[in-house]
Design a protein around this nucleic acid. Structure first.
Lengths: 251, 251
DNA sequence: TTATGACCAGATAAACAAAATTAGTCATTT
DNA sequence: AAATGACTAATTTTGTTTATCTGGTCATAA
C-alpha cells in the first residue's frame, strides 16, 4: 500500500499506548470475570471499569468472545512467565520436585488458568463451551508431560519400571487432586498455596523417584541440563504465543 | 400395646416379604437414578419399574426424599460389605497398599457412592443440597482417616516425619484426584477400575512408606493385626447402620 | 389386612408477551 | 485519525397465564 506513513518513532509511541490500553481493558475483564463470571460480565461493565468507551473495546477485538480469549491467552503467557521465573531462580528448578512445586504454585496463583484447567463452568460459563472445541490445550499439555517424562527417564531422574502413559496419568491425577481438593475439605482444614504445592511436590517426588538401587542420582549437571531444557521450552512457547498475538492484533 | 398379634412365624414371613419388596423398590430407584438423576426420577417411574403401585412405596417411606436417603444408606452398607470382603480375602488386606487399592475399588464399583463422595450435582440434584446439611459423612470420613493413620504410624507402617493432618490431606487429595480424573483425560487414555486402583495404591504406598532406615517393616503379625482392626471397625459400623435402619422401618 | 390407583393440591414446566439488557455499529465529536 | 456514546437489532430476562406433572392421600378392592 502506498498510503502515507507516520514516523517510526510516532508509530511505536502509539503502539505502546494502544497496548497499554488493551492491557487495562484485559485487566478489567479479568477482574470482573473473577467476580461475576463470564456470563454476567458485560462489555459495558468492562468499558466502565477500564475507563474507556464501549466502542474503544471494539477497536481492539472483533467480538466479546475474542476479548475473553485474548484475556486467557495473556493469562497463559503470564503463567508461563511466572513459572519460568520461579524455575530459574530456584536451584532445585531442575528437579522433579522443584518443577512440580513451581508448576503448582504458578497454577494456584492464577485463578483464571486454574479455572480453565479445572473446567470451572460457574466461572467460565459459555466461553468454555464455545472455546474448548478448537482448543487443543489439554492434549497439548499431556503431550508436554510425555516429553518431560521421557527426558527425566533418559537421565535416570525418574523410575522407568512403569509404563510412561501410566506415569503421566498418575502425575496428572495427583496434581488434579490437589488442585481440586480445597472445597472438599472441612473448613478447619485449609492450607496455603505454598503448603499445597509443597505437599504435591512431596507426593510426586516420592512416587516417581527411582528405586535407590539405580545409579544416576541427580547430580548438579543433570539438574542444570533439565532446568535449561525446560526453560528454553517455555521460552519457545512464549515467543510463539506472543507472535501469534501480534498477528491477531494486526488482523 | 395389647393388640392381637400374628404368630412369630407368620410375622417373619411377612417381614422378609416386605423387605424383599423394599429392596426391589430401592433397586429400581437406584437404576433410574443412575439413568436420569435424582431430579428427573419420579415416584411413578420407580413404582412402574419395580412393578408395584405408587401407594405401596409410601407404605415403606414417608417421603420421596426418605426413599432416596434409604437407597444411599443401603449403598453405603453394600460398599462397606464389599470392602470388608475384599480386605478379608486379600493377604495384603492389612497393608497400606492393599487398603488403598480395595477402598478405591469398592468406591469405583459403586457409582452412587462415588457420586456422593464427588458431590455430583448432575446426578444427585436436589437430594445433595437437602441431605448434606445433616450428613456429617465427610468429617466422619476424615476422622476415620486420622484414626487409621495413627494406627499405621504406631506400627511403623507409615512414616511419621510429616504432620498427620497433612498426611490425611495428602491421602484424600490423591484418592480424590484418581476418582475425578476420568473425564479430564482425552478419550484414548482410559484405564479400568482395577488399573486405577492399582495406580492409586502405588502412589499412596510410595508416598507414605517409611524411609528404609526405620526398623519395623511390616511383618505378617502387623498385617494381620491391622487387617483385623480395620475389618472389625467396618463390622461395627455395619451393625450400627443396620440397627439404625431397623429402627427407622418400625418408625 | 394389605395393596391399589384414582384423585387432589401444589409444584413444575411450557408458552407467550412485554420489558430490559446487551453486543456490536456508526455518525458525530475531539 | 482516534475515541466516543447514542442507537439498533437481537438476545436475555421478567412477568403472567395456562397446561402438565408429581408427591402424597385415601376410599375402595383384593
Amino acid at each position: 500500500m502506498a498510503s502515507p506513513r507516520r514516523s517510526a518513532r510516532n508509530q511505536t509511541e502509539e503502539r505502546s499506548k494502544r497496548e497499554e490500553r488493551a492491557d487495562r481493558i484485559l485487566d478489567a475483564a479479568g477482574e470482573l470475570m473473577l467476580r461475576w463470571g463470564y456470563n454476567k460480565t458485560t462489555i459495558d461493565d468492562i468499558a466502565r471499569y477500564a475507563g474507556v468507551a464501549k466502542g474503544t473495546i471494539y477497536l481492539h477485538w472483533k467480538t466479546r468472545e475474542d476479548l475473553f480469549t485474548a484475556l486467557m491467552k495473556r493469562e497463559y503467557i503470564r503463567l508461563s512467565e511466572d513459572l519460568k521465573q520461579r524455575l530459574a531462580s530456584d536451584p532445585e528448578g531442575g528437579t522433579l520436585r522443584g518443577i512440580t512445586k513451581h508448576s503448582m504454585l504458578a497454577t494456584l496463583k492464577n485463578p483464571l488458568m486454574k479455572a480453565v484447567i479445572l473446567r470451572d463452568t460457574d466461572l467460565l460459563g459459555e466461553w468454555l463451551r464455545k472455546e474448548q472445541e478448537d482448543s487443543v490445550t489439554f492434549s497439548q499439555q499431556v503431550a508436554q508431560s510425555f516429553a518431560l517424562f521421557e527426558l527425566f527417564r533418559s537421565r535416570g531422574v525418574v523410575r522407568d519400571d512403569i509404563d510412561v502413559r501410566k506415569q503421566v496419568y498418575m502425575l496428572d491425577s495427583i496434581t488434579l487432586g490437589f488442585l481440586v481438593m480445597e472445597p472438599y475439605m472441612p473448613g478447619d482444614f485449609k492450607y496455603s498455596d505454598e503448603e499445597i504445592a509443597e505437599m504435591t511436590a512431596e507426593v510426586v517426588e516420592r512416587t516417581f523417584a527411582p528405586s535407590p538401587s539405580s545409579d544416576a542420582q541427580s547430580d548438579e549437571r543433570t539438574k542444570q541440563e533439565i532446568s535449561n531444557t525446560l526453560i528454553s521450552y517455555i521460552d519457545d512457547v512464549l515467543t510463539l504465543r506472543k507472535k501469534q498475538n501480534q498477528e491477531e492484533v494486526s488482523q
